[in-house]
Amino acid sequence: MKPYPLEKVYQLIEPGPVVLLTTALDDRQNVMTMSWHMMMEFTPPLIGCIVSSADHSFAALSQTGECVIAIPASDMAEKVVAVGNCSGRDTDKFAEIGLTALPARKVGAPLIGECFANLECKVTDRDFVERHNLFVLEVVAAWHEPRDAAPKMLHHKGYGTFAVDGEDITLASKMP
């Protein structure tokens, strides 16, 4: 084994899939690209996500305590990157990039019509926000597009490189 550069460690452990996080504040909707997230619990479903305090979405998520995690298929790769390459401070990303905002049922942030799944979320824990920009979200409603039976997802590998899901394999599991 040889030493590995610490600044590249995230490329080895990047959680994926890449998702889009939507927020709404003062009747202004926004969307950001996010790949730093993790499942934390099954029931209720809890997701931890990092939203940098430098991101425009941070203020909306902090103030409203609500968001949607929209999961795009790999055919949306160019739009996903376009969302990540501009700021909601000065761009209406939905209009600019061509995303369809749909009303959510339990949160003020919009669903994204082009995504195969949308998770309505509420912030349930802010204990790590100040130190690590880590929000704990509870999924309060979930939606999917049934016609997309096996969508391929994007996984960020760092510095503009992405992987697309490969072949699924099923192995015996003793987990409930």
Rank of each mutant, 00 (worst) to 15 (best):
M34E: 01
A104H: 09
L21I: 11
M175K: 10
M76N: 07
V68R: 08
D75A: 10
K106D: 01
V164L: 06
D26R: 14
V51H: 01
V18R: 00
P45W: 02
V140H: 12
V18E: 03
V81T: 05
C86V: 00
K152I: 00
V19W: 00
V68K: 06
C86E: 01
A24T: 11
V107I: 14
N30H: 05
S87M: 07
P45A: 11
G166F: 08
A70K: 13
D27I: 04
I97S: 03
T124R: 13
I97K: 01
P3G: 13
P3W: 15
M153C: 14
D55N: 11
V51I: 11
L134I: 12
A24N: 14
S87Q: 05
S62C: 09
G16V: 01
E130H: 13
A141L: 09
V31N: 03
A109S: 08
D148Q: 12
A117Q: 04
E96Q: 15
C86L: 02
M32E: 03
M40E: 01
P151S: 06
A59W: 00
S87C: 06
G98I: 09
A117V: 04
P176F: 10
M39P: 04
I50P: 00
T91Q: 03
T64R: 06
A150F: 07
F162W: 15
S35M: 00
L119T: 02
K2Y: 12
R89C: 02
V80Y: 00
T43F: 08
K8M: 09
A73Y: 03
G113H: 08
E138V: 10
G65P: 14
D148K: 15
K106T: 15
M32N: 03
K122W: 05
D26V: 14
Y4P: 05
V19S: 00
N133P: 06
V68I: 13
L99E: 02
D168R: 11
M40W: 00
F42W: 04
L134G: 07
R126P: 12
E120C: 13
K106N: 08
T43S: 10
A172E: 11
L154G: 00
F58N: 07
K157P: 02
G158E: 02
G113W: 02
N30R: 01
S35F: 02
P72N: 15
K79P: 06
K174S: 14
V136F: 10
S52K: 09
H156V: 02
M76V: 07
M153D: 00
I13F: 06
H132Q: 12
K152G: 02
I47M: 06
A149L: 12
F42T: 05
V107N: 06
P5H: 11
M39V: 04
G48D: 15
S52F: 07
A141V: 06
A95P: 01
M34C: 13
S57H: 02
V9Q: 02
L154K: 00
H132N: 09
T23Q: 04
A149V: 10
K8W: 04
N30Q: 08
T124V: 15
